[in-house]
Design a protein around this nucleic acid. Sequence first.
DNA 1: CTTAATTAGTTGACATAATCAACTAATTAA
DNA 2: TTAATTAGTTGATTATGTCAACTAATTAAG
Lengths: 144, 144
Amino acid sequence: MRERNISDIRAFNRFYTNVIGLLDQHVLNSKYSLPEVRILYELYHQEDLTASDIITSIRIDKGYLSRIIRQFEKKKLITKAKSSTDARSLHLRLTKKGRSEFEVLNDASHNQIKDTLEPLTDAECDKLTRNMTEIQKILSKTQK
Amino acid sequence: MRERNISDIRAFNRFYTNVIGLLDQHVLNSKYSLPEVRILYELYHQEDLTASDIITSIRIDKGYLSRIIRQFEKKKLITKAKSSTDARSLHLRLTKKGRSEFEVLNDASHNQIKDTLEPLTDAECDKLTRNMTEIQKILSKTQK
DNA sequence: CTTAATTAGTTGACATAATCAACTAATTAA
DNA sequence: TTAATTAGTTGATTATGTCAACTAATTAAG
């Protein structure tokens, strides 16, 4: 009963864990950690998040996050501002420096994928991404 | 040029990093770490590996691996045997206990995927796994 | 309204995971 | 036969992540 599907999925998971591990290498060689980059990512794509918002979107301990935020502030990558509606929460925004730091990392990731696709034909690239969006669509049905 | 493909792939990577993170939860709640389970996996599927073989197949520091192996030995999960052809290398084998410990983890992973698939139709499951094997086929051409 | 419960974020103390370099011993290459 | 390489170990250290206790602000319950 779906045994074959299950083992195929598990094989894919092992395979893709490795793909992601390789792609993460360049981040690990940068001056930011993976969680740090994910946080910068969140702030880049949605200004004005609170620490709680970030906890909701990525799996991270609030104490750990708090320290990363403090570091970011010290490095002038973000600014904190007390919310006017809820004095407990802090609204976080990337500074100009923060945005540009993220963009460097982002461009590197982008180019890394571009290089990876280089040996493929356009048709293969399209097929690849269709498969990916299809997987997302299907798996989204499994967790609401 | 391929910008759309690249951003779709990156979106998939973020999505799937999260999927894998959720699936890894049960391992993190077990008494073994992710690298430990990967090592058990390797030994389960190919008896008689050396530490070097494992380093070749998974990305792990040899010192780190050496300590994990020592722990495994202490817990009677594996046995070490000096190679007759190369006295530097150690042939590693799971004990009966090692195999059964791995099987518990393995069954849990299996059932976790099974549960995940539960809300899907058979057709969706098949489509999902076809997409996955397709991705592996295409990415293998990019030489990793 | 007042008290209890909850939530946002901080901090200290730890635990776990991972890296690095120096080292021994065995093997292979020059 | 010496030099270089390889397998594995060990000590020291850093990076990463967890947990619980705590303050202050807000919301819910009676």
